[in-house]
């Protein structure tokens, strides 16, 4: 399993992931897992419609009022504030705040909490066929208004890993949250995509810190290379004991392929940028085999 991440939003994680997926799929059987569940968009970049929907359900507590002794233990243990005690100490559940952790269920001394369920999102398994290349795209998507991302991330990841393949490529969300850590967990290699900007540098340091803490191997990919100075990025990467393994030049062609909605390695297969991505795919493939 290989992950594409980077800390900052908008550095080109999904662009790198999608192009890399196509190149890796030429070499072996691949599953691309889009775990940016709050805003998955690899399917848009690949121009496919999501298929084979399955719900992501989490536990939602219901209260059996005749069994409730009004002890308040459920509200006390609730970490997200989803359980409110009324003036006469009867628990009242606020579904949207519930993360489905079951703590109330376990702590209730009279088994007055009944396990119900709630759908917070969906996973999809979509066959992709572009430029005579086939692979499977697994996508996690949170329902609008939901805030508990980890269950959707984990379920989509499980679904991706249940598909037989030689390579699993994970595309994470931006940031360094629980969800990103859950996405990265188990990666043999992490590709951290950054850009030569101060904010890119700042967020790169955060993701390198997280990866280091998780004991993961990181390769830094400098996207939009040439846009600005990279010496400070280089220093930071070196400090963490990692390396910038690829520089993808900033170019009009990348923007153009994005506008057309056709991944770069297909729309401009002979460009310098596509060459860098293919080279990266070769190096990744080497690590895997």
């Amino acid at each position: 399993m290989i992950s594409v991440t980077g800390g900052k939003g908008g550095t080109g994680k999904s662009t790198v992931a999608v192009n890399l997926a196509i190149e890796l799929a030429r070499r072996g059987k691949l599953v691309l897992a889009d775990l940016d569940v709050e805003d998955p968009n690899d399917h848009i970049l690949l121009n496919v419609e999501l298929q084979n929907e399955e719900p992501v359900n989490i536990m939602l507590p219901f209260v059996k009022y005749e069994a409730c002794i009004k002890c308040g233990a459920c509200a006390e243990v609730c970490d997200t504030g989803a359980m409110l005690l009324s003036p006469d100490k009867v628990p009242y559940v606020i579904p949207r705040l519930c993360s489905g952790c079951r703590a109330c269920y376990f702590v209730c001394p009279t088994k007055a909490i009944v396990e119900g369920k709630r759908t917070i999102g969906y996973t999809y398994e979509t066959p992709v066929n572009v430029d005579d290349v086939n692979f499977t795209l697994v996508t996690g998507m949170l329902r609008e208004g939901e805030e508990h991302t980890p269950p959707a991330v984990l379920q989509a990841k499980r679904r991706a890993l249940s598909v037989e393949a030689d390579v699993y490529l994970v595309d994470t969300s931006a940031g360094t949250s629980n969800s990103v850590a859950s996405s990265l967990d188990g990666s043999k290699l992490v590709l951290a995509v950054t850009e030569p900007t101060p904010l890119g540098l700042h967020d790169l340091a955060l993701i390198l810190e997280l990866a280091k803490e998780m004991g993961l191997e990181v390769w830094v990919v400098m996207n939009r290379s040439g846009l600005g100075p990279e010496d400070r990025h280089e220093r930071v990467v070196k400090e963490y004991g990692y390396e910038i393994v690829a520089r993808i030049p900033y170019s009009r062609r990348v923007v153009d392929s994005y506008v057309k909605g056709v991944p770069l390695v297909i729309s401009y297969p002979d460009s310098e940028e596509a060459f860098k991505l293919k080279e990266l795919a070769d190096r990744v493939w080497e690590v895997l085999s």
């Binding site: 509200a75 609730c78 970490d79 997200t80 504030g81 989803a82 409110l84 005690l85 009324s86 003036p87 606020i94 949207r96 705040l97 805030e147």
Partner: peptide
């Protein structure tokens, strides 16, 4: 609170026996 701030506030108001509350805005929860 990390999450469910309003609910924790309401729990306090219930404990204090409050029947009416004033604030600039209230969220859906």
């Amino acid at each position: 609170a990390r999450s469910g701030a309003a609910i924790k506030a309401i729990q306090l108001l219930i404990k204090e026996g409050v029947r009416k509350v004033y604030a600039g805005s209230f969220g859906p929860n």
